[in-house]
Design a protein around this nucleic acid. Structure first.
Lengths: 203, 203
DNA sequence: ATACTTAATGACTAAGGAGTCAGCAAGTAA
DNA sequence: TTACTTGCTGACTCCTTAGTCATTAAGTAT
């Protein structure tokens, strides 16, 4: 009968582990229905320990959202800014790929949480806007502008807000969040929209 | 000193009054954060009375959602089906007007609630899908098909899912729910999309 | 007036869950 | 081995709130 320790001390890893467990639980149950006890169980620790690393439930929530955002967005938006593709190739390629990925990614979960809990956490909303939405829109705007400069697109192309590129992505996301069992070819939707916009911009 | 009664008995009106108060409270706070006591106060009654008309909080929630849906959707979708306009006029006129109204209407609130609480109320999601989404999509599809029959649109126009018409409406709704203070010309967005699609379908 | 029905009240119960903290034991150093 | 620090536990407190129910009083009929 070996003397197995009841637990290991792992000060360094705990915060991330707790955040991961919390994200999964928030994703499944939403903020209000999530019990700290569940998060702790999932992380394999006691409830009390959660409070050593996060002062309150709200604290944990905010940390989790920011954590997901920074971990994902940099890689997704970042590589977009350093491409050598033509504007058209970029819109059809990397941008489309990016958009296809989002509805099934943790970003979609974060958006669900922001829709539900946003009004009670305005600073979180602002954080998300600055770090995700504003950057994403700027990236698209930049590529359209570059296309105009190079003569690929008409001048009026800029009239088409970048939001129009993202609209089908938004619908796909919500659709999949709410109507999980109703099929919808969301990839097709986004492809069509890109072609629609490209046709307009080039015409 | 007149003998004012403490309350009036109004069996007939109570359910609707409670439902209205509940809708407002759910809209402000979300399902979990709404206390039955708040709803009762808002409706000007005692908490106990709520339970005379609605068995549980969940019951009340479902009743409220269905109540809003049936009251709004019939008028919005209904008149759409009996128009004499050409397909193109219809898409530019009544459909566009409808779409412009939705993001600021109670329907948007219901969608927020469905996004947050949907997973825990699958029958509600199905109800909403059947009565709103399916009917809305069918209406658009029908008008595009009619346009094709009449030779207004190309055959391939049908490839463009009705979802594409609704995508900017979806984005506008979410935008306004989450980023209430960030301006966005959502009407312009929807107009552009309609024009984009019409151009494609006629080309 | 009087008796009766039931809409409506509000105090109460029970349960659940956020946050606390005294004590325990894993790791560390001498 | 012993003394010490601190990551970690889990039982506890306290508050909130869904749901109940004995009681009250508004409306009605006779």
């Amino acid at each position: 009968m070996t003397n197995q320790p009841k637990y290991q001390r792992r000060k360094e890893d705990r915060p991330q582990e707790i955040a991961d467990a919390a994200f999964k639980t928030f994703a499944e149950k939403g903020y209000a229905a999530t019990r700290i006890d569940d998060v702790a169980k999932r992380a394999g620790i006691s409830k009390g320990l959660t409070y050593l690393y996060f002062k309150t439930k709200e604290d944990l929530f905010k940390a989790v959202v920011k954590n997901v955002v920074v971990r994902r967005v940099d890689s997704l938006i970042g590589n977009v800014e350093s491409t050598e593709l033509s504007s058209e190739e970029f819109l059809r390629g990397p941008l489309l790929d990016f958009m296809k990925k989002v509805p099934g990614s943790p970003i979609a979960i974060v958006i669900r949480l922001l829709i539900s809990e946003g009004p009670r956490h305005p600073d979180l909303v602002n954080y998300y806007y600055d770090n995700v939405v504003a950057r994403g829109l700027a990236a698209i705007r930049q590529f359209v502008a570059r296309g105009v400069e190079r003569g690929e697109f008409r001048r009026e192309a800029l009239e088409h807000q970048p939001h129009l590129f993202l609209a089908p992505m938004m619908l796909s996301m919500i659709w999949r969040l709410v109507f999980t069992d109703k099929p919808l070819d969301t990839d097709q939707l986004m492809e069509s929209q890109i072609e629609l916009l490209l046709a307009e911009m080039k015409a």
